[in-house]
Every structure is written in structure tokens, then in C-alpha cells.
Design a protein around this nucleic acid. Structure first.
Lengths: 244, 244
DNA sequence: CGGATGCTTGAGGTCTATCAAAGCGAGTGG
DNA sequence: CCACTCGCTTTGATAGACCTCAAGCATCCG
């Protein structure tokens, strides 16, 4: 709203050392000294207003980005324009891993609210991870975790019904929010029904109907994007339901 | 068939240097000298008879595996027993990247035919990649490529219809086989209809019907697992079809 | 040769998509 | 301050794609 395109915030020290996300982000498990070395690498931040892209498919890949504040979606597009949301990223999570493969980004990253990211020049990260065993290890684990997450989404898309997908989605979101200090039972969705549907392989009407049904069943309270989880166990049962 | 469980083949030199897959596998882009260093790391092979697992969910993660000969599937399972094939791997492709995240494998890898793999102790690989910039770079690209591939599968599962999924699947398989010197138009499926269906988020009957329809339309010739692609362009059009 | 496994095909049912309309809420401008 | 617009959401009716259940057929292998 304030600016039309993302802007670089000058030479602002990113300072992983002082960041309260360091236990969720790249520095996890590093010694204070090692985090200090990261500080020199992660030198800049960038703000991305709501609705703007952090990067687009085909953009030259230079850096990874760590979400500092805000919320993103990533999506891939087919030639015919259909697109698929591949993930939602919140604070402490990395964006841009797709770009390493071909030195060009393979998806779009869009801010769903005004956001800030830390810029991690990838070349430098590779260099530093050749010096710090633990950093290399953490980075590999983060990439592997993304692969495992993707496989979970495949399971969801390939073999779950609408209600199960929505339940799994809500449980995943609340779990990640809880780690960041938010309530386990209340959340505000940052994305539209259509974006949820795209992520879950459903149409927006189906997402809406599913929310309504879960509300009727006393599992949720839904007020637009405000969700209250009334019966957490019911959600768990829905996800684990054995072909009933 | 010959042995009940996978066995280690003693101290057989794997010798990436002499391997005709080295342009498709981990050594891609490395100098002969660097490949020589890899040789010392990738010291053993392992055979996996058809139907046996290379690793299972929960197994301790020690090594990555490069498929040398044969064919694998990987699959993840939900608590209720449903499972989802997350990929099919052929020669030169890596298995086990999922295990890095938690030091335990997060999926099962099953040989679909008698296969051999090269064992790549991961700890050693991390060590060597701290010495050889190019190796680190190649490894990161391989992991990233897996992430990009997974996103493509999400797009397929989330927004394509049965015929498009099957067409995309066949094009993907033939493309990978072609790189390995096989025909672009003929292939022998190594997996059952059920496994294809699991990968594509369809039931085996739907896969079978889709094959039959494509055959009736003159796009394919299907004889059980033998597939001949009669009209390659038609397959391409099906995949790129804009919501017709 | 005969059982086991996998594949094909049909009929009917279910879930989700599609199309359409109305409701809600936030921000805008008169 | 209120009416208005716009984007998003909800809800209904209908249609279509895929699933389920079931039977018969092919193929492989002991």
C-alpha cells in the first residue's frame, strides 16, 4: 500500500544473534560464535508489502530468504494458467530453496500480509557452510525437511477426502503457530478460501462448505477468517480416520 | 528371488570413475580427480531383490543410495494404513534424502525389480563436500531438484484430471528413460496399475480405464505393461490443455 | 496346468466441481 | 456519517468425474 514494489532496506544489520527466531530458523543449534559469523552473511532485510512478490518463476536465483515477520504463499503455475499453492510460510521459515536447482526460481513467492525477510546470499551461505560443519548440517536438514513436508502434502492430495484435508491443514497451521507462541485453538487465516483450496486441491466452495460443516458439528467456530478450534480431538480423529 | 533379504556386497569398489551413470548421478560436473575422491567414499554396493525394501520408515538414516541398476518406488504411509507412492526412481537417481531431516527415514523404498544401489555414507559425503565446492554445489542442486519435482507432483495432484495426470506421468517417464538411452516412444512399466494410481492420486481402475481410452483414441498402444506412444503430440496437448 | 496376481470392463453411487445468487465486511467517497 | 463498491464468503441446485463393487480375463510362474 505504501510502496508499489519491494524495496531493500539499506545496510541494516540483520543480526541473527539478537533474533528471537533463531531457534526456528537457520541458526538453530549453532553456537553463539557461529551465529555471529552468520550475522555477517545475512546483512540485509527486505520488506514485501501485502500482495507483492518476493520472487517470481524464472527470476535469477541469488539468495534464500528467511521470513522474519509476515506470511507468504508459494505457488507454481502450469502453462495453461492453472496454478497450485505449494506452501504457506511463516516466520523463521526459508523461501527460495527451489531456485538452487537451476539458478532460477521455480515458483512465485507472494506476501499475504506486509512482511519482512532476511536476505541470505546463497553463494555466501555455501561458502560459510564449508567452514562450519554445523551450519552445513542444519541447512541439509532444512532442505530434507522440506522434502518430507512435500511428501506429506502428496499423501494429503492423493488420498484424503475434503474434510480430512481441511482438518490436516488446520492442525498443521496451529501446530506451527503454537511453536511461535500463538494459541493452539485460535487462529486468523491469512489466506483466502481460494488459496486454501488451491493448496488442498479443492475448490473454494468446497473449502467453505467444509468449514461450515465442521462448525455445525461443533468442531470449529468460523467467523470469516477467524477460526476457533472447539474440539481438537475431533480434528485429530478426522485426519486419522480409517476409511470410514 | 535369489536371497530373502538385501545383502551387502563385500568391499566391492563402486568406482564412480568408471560408471556410465556419472553424468546423471552425484558426480555430474566434477573433475576426474574429484570423482576419484568420490570413489573412496562410495565404496560399497548393495543388491535389492524385487519386492524387497532398501529402507523403511523409521529406519536409522546412515547413507544415501544411488540407483545403479533397477527401479524403485518410495512411499509414505498414514497411520490408518493408506499409503501414497511419492516417486519412482531409476538409474542415477538418489534415494534417502528424506532421512537427513530427522536421522530416520521418512518413507519406504521398495525395489520394483532386482536392483543394485551404490551406498553413499552421508556423514562422509558431508565431509567431502566441505572440501570440494563443486560436490557441495551438485548435492544442493540435487536436493533442490527433488523439491521442484515434488511441487510439480503437487500441481498434478491438486489440479489435473485423470487423463492429464496419466499423460504427464508417461511423458515424465519416457523423458527420463530417453536420457538413459531408451526409446522415446516405447516403454515397459515396472509398476502395477495400483502403484501408478497411488502416485497419481487415482484408483487402479481409473488408471486402467484411462489407458484404454487413450488407446481407443489412437494415442497409445497398451499391452499390459508394454506401452507404445503412438501420438506424442497428443499427449503433450492433453497435459497443456487449458480447462477444456 | 492351475493358482495367484494383476488387468480390464461394467453398473451404480458418491464426492466434489460448477454455476448462480445472495450476504457480509472493509474501505471509499460523497 | 452513510451509501456504495468491491472482494471475499456462504449457500443452493445441478452436473460430472472418479470411486466402489463385482465379475471375467490375461499373464506369469511354480
Amino acid at each position: 500500500m505504501t510502496v508499489a514494489t519491494p524495496v531493500r532496506i539499506g545496510p541494516v544489520k540483520a543480526a541473527c544473534s539478537n533474533c528471537n527466531l533463531r531457534e526456528l530458523c537457520l541458526p538453530v543449534g549453532l553456537s553463539p560464535e557461529q551465529v555471529g559469523q552468520l550475522d555477517e552473511l545475512v546483512a540485509t532485510r527486505r520488506t514485501v508489502p501485502r500482495g507483492e512478490t518476493l520472487f517470481r518463476t524464472g527470476d535469477s536465483f541469488q539468495s534464500l530468504f528467511a521470513v522474519r515477520t509476515g506470511f507468504f504463499k508459494t505457488c507454481v503455475s502450469a502453462e495453461d494458467g492453472r496454478d497450485q499453492v505449494t506452501g504457506f510460510q511463516m516466520s523463521g521459515e526459508l523461501l527460495g530453496l527451489d531456485g538452487i536447482s537451476t539458478d532460477r526460481h521455480a515458483c512465485d513467492a507472494v506476501a499475504l500480509e506486509d512482511s519482512t525477510v532476511c536476505v541470505i546470499p546463497f553463494h555466501d551461505l555455501e561458502g560459510l557452510s564449508m567452514q562450519i560443519t554445523e551450519l552445513q548440517r542444519v541447512f541439509h536438514k532444512i532442505m530434507s525437511r522440506e522434502i518430507v513436508r512435500d511428501h506429506g502434502v502428496m499423501l494429503l492430495l492423493g488420498s484424503m477426502r475434503a474434510e480430512e484435508r481441511v482438518a490436516a491443514f488446520l492442525l498443521n497451521l496451529t501446530q506451527r503457530l503454537h511453536v511461535r507462541g500463538f494459541s493452539r485453538s485460535e487462529l486468523v487465516l491469512r489466506m483466502t478460501r481460494e488459496e486454501i483450496g488451491s493448496y488442498l486441491g479443492l475448490k473454494l466452495e468446497t473449502v467453505s462448505r467444509t468449514f461450515s460443516r465442521l462448525q455445525d458439528d461443533g468442531v470449529l467456530e468460523v467467523k470469516q477468517r477467524q477460526i476457533r478450534i472447539v474440539d481438537h480431538n475431533a480434528l485429530l480423529q478426522i485426519v486419522n480416520a480409517s476409511t470410514c
